[in-house]
Design a protein around this nucleic acid. Structure first.
Lengths: 408, 408
DNA sequence: CATTTATGTTGCTTTATGCAACAAATATAT
DNA sequence: ATATATTTGTTGCATAAAGCAACATAAATG
């Protein structure tokens, strides 16, 4: 049953407040008990109790006797003892099953990357079972027994349409269809663990928006532009999946061609289209994307024309998207995103030309943190779930062992 | 500060659980204490305490000694005493400031319409202050003193872009610009009350989706097609506003014209476009929409051609929208929606023709409940807020009066 | 050095939920 | 009709979490 908003026994209240405290510590890295109390709206003594409990569970600790903000805006008063999450207290795994690679990431309780890894993988020619086995195997390969014991879940990202129950409707790039992916993953685990699966673009969006100290309150659209174009929408810090997990799939928008028949935006914005066009322009040898970028930078007319077309299509897509979801922040990722800085002015020009002035313009950035990707996002999903109230693995723990009451 | 997930003192817990109980009673109309306990995940005795408290506050009552489901699936066991909300316990007002009318609605604690009213109004030629004064005046006009005392808020809907602080950026149809609408409304109130303002399409969407016993879990897109075309998105039962309250504004999508220059979908789908085209086709006298509908029904070629163009544009718009927000339910409202039943097959045909088979199709309905409109939705917004935990007016009440503790 | 200010801790109080037991009211079986 | 089973509503009592107030502590400030 979904959350109906009721609070149960005292212990449930404490559980909830402990998780709220941990979320606050995750967000702000370090807080004194008093700051925590203020942020949570609780009494200082309650905050102290909660920290004591979490400390005993090994989930938080006092950071070396460091004290409060000195220097600028120095306070009078006794400095607080800063508390932080114990990073080693938990492990979350993320895997991306891509078309060409399997990428694995391990993050800790502070949602920081402990290790990351990528290996080549023949996605299109591997059947689901083998792919999952290989991916899960990779994820657990380098996990020491102690960390395995601390593992709180694994997330799997793949270029697939999946519903909220972990069933894959169809994954054209991998040749999957109608697969209970979550169950397959569960079956492949060395130990029972919480499992989440998610579309790769959605996972990317989560990863790219997770853990900022001030979660963007608004609507952010994350695009991943490679051969295909995927997208994910983050609303007030959490993923908007849509009814079937397809929200934000901007790549399938119909693009208006004054000349050609309808095409999907993906066919215009994607790497393949760019390289095909580039090949016909520059017959010399190898039409790599890097060479194309260089040509655009050097203002080679043919390349510039292609880039111009790209910019116009991107502008059109972003406008259509913003009409619907009213995003105020757009983040471009994937290798093709490198083209954006060269064409930013043109894209903005087209955007302004195509819409009335009263419509608020979103901020457009490129994602330059290369460590962030679907695998990281998949791990973050587990991290987020672990720190959330609903269906938290911790809530599913057996009731805390109590010493048998001494006979009175 | 937004909700950080922490729970305060015992009294806050009770408050929260009381509200959860009221939400459950709103959703299911009548529940026994035991059913309520099961639904909330609380103990039966706790449920009893909560019901006792709410009864004393006059918010719920036992419905005449009616008992449990007899007849089909009859139970053994003592029948429960059904509890229901006391409808008269609260009043919520909703007003729509339209271009041609001011509509007012009064609903009760069960979110049922107590009274509704509409008067002609010259929206475009009235300044904001006068419009607000007139609208608020209308809303309170027929409210008896007792019900005024029970009034828990007023919602105002208008065809305007507004942010989440109640500021209107621009409202072309009313000639407003940069107005602090919420403040104006507050100033016009006879007594201080919670105020919410919302875009009319968004308010319509809330009204059309509110109070169903099983809130649609998924994404629903509500369209209002009149002279203009507005839209609102409901996700799992609550409004998705977007970053600036513009989400779902499908009317401003760019439509691909094989022939004409770019147009907004509104210009193609709206009443005006239809009537203009119709006028040029049927030169005889008065080109009303009703006449147009009749002609379409009679298969008059000129009218059918217009309707066909309309169906194609609608299909295009819906597909673009569903690409972005992945809706699984679409509800068409406004007077133009009457055209849909005649063209449903064509619209579906175009939709299927325009997208690949793997994309799940949304269900499309027309809204035929004429009582539902932006004014009702605006009132529902207040109702929803009243029963929600965040910023509930009830939480802002002064602490319950306690008899001074008898000196021990 | 005294003062001010803020932190962390410690008993004690308040209060909401859980539990167990019981009476009440109905369906079902004998 | 009677007995049994089942479910409901109520009532004390136990548990436990948060609030409150007071106090010792530790720094900044004058």
């Amino acid at each position: 049953m979904s959350d109906v908003g009721a609070i149960g026994a005292s212990r449930a209240t404490r559980q909830r407040n402990e998780l709220a405290a941990m979320r606050a510590l995750h967000r702000f890295r370090r807080l004194s008990r008093a700051e925590l109390a203020r942020f949570l709206g609780l009494n200082r003594s309650s905050s102290g109790h909660i920290v004591a409990g979490l400390t005993q569970e090994g989930l938080v600790r006092e950071v070396g006797a460091l004290a409060q903000a000195r220097g600028l805006h120095a306070h009078a008063g006794r400095p607080g003892i800063l508390i932080e999450l114990v990073p080693e207290a938990a492990v979350f795994l993320g895997v991306e099953i891509g078309v060409e690679h399997i990428t694995t990431v391990e993050i800790d309780l502070a949602s920081r990357i402990v290790s990351a890894n990528a290996v080549p993988f023949a996605g299109a020619s591997t059947d689901v079972g083998a792919a999952v086995a290989q991916a899960v195997g990779r994820a657990f390969e380098s996990l020491s027994p102690e960390r395995l014991e601390r593992c709180e879940g694994i997330g799997v990202a793949a270029p697939a349409q999946m519903d909220r129950h972990g069933r894959v409707r169809v994954a054209p790039l991998l040749g999957w269809e109608n697969v209970q992916l979550a169950d397959l993953v569960r079956a492949a685990l060395p130990v029972p663990l919480p499992v989440l699966v998610e579309n790769d673009a959605n996972a990317f969006a989560i990863g790219a928006s997770y853990g900022r100290s001030e979660p963007h309150s608004g609507v952010a659209l994350f695009l991943v532009m490679e051969s295909g174009v995927g997208g994910g929408i983050i609303v007030d810090g959490s993923l908007f999946r849509g009814a079937h997990g397809l929200a934000g799939e901007i790549g399938h928008l119909r693009v208006q061609g004054g000349d050609a028949p309808e095409r999907s935006l993906e066919e215009v914005l994607g790497l393949e289209c760019i390289l095909t066009d580039y090949r016909s322009t520059a017959p010399a040898g190898e039409p790599t994307f890097a060479a194309f970028l260089a040509d655009v930078r050097d203002r080679v007319p043919g390349a510039v024309a292609i880039a111009e077309r790209w910019a116009r299509a991107l502008a059109f897509g972003l406008i259509q998207a913003c009409r619907m979801i009213d995003a105020d922040r757009i983040v471009l990722g994937g290798s093709v995103a490198a083209l954006y800085p060269l064409m930013a002015a043109r894209v903005l020009h087209y955007i302004q030309a195509m819409q009335e002035a009263s419509f608020p313009l979103p901020a457009i950035e490129t994602n330059d943190d290369e460590t962030i990707g679907p695998a990281f996002g998949a791990a973050c999903m587990l991290h987020q779930r672990y720190l959330s109230n609903e269906e938290s693995p911790r809530l599913a723990e057996p009731p805390p062992l109590q010493e048998p009451a001494p006979p009175a």
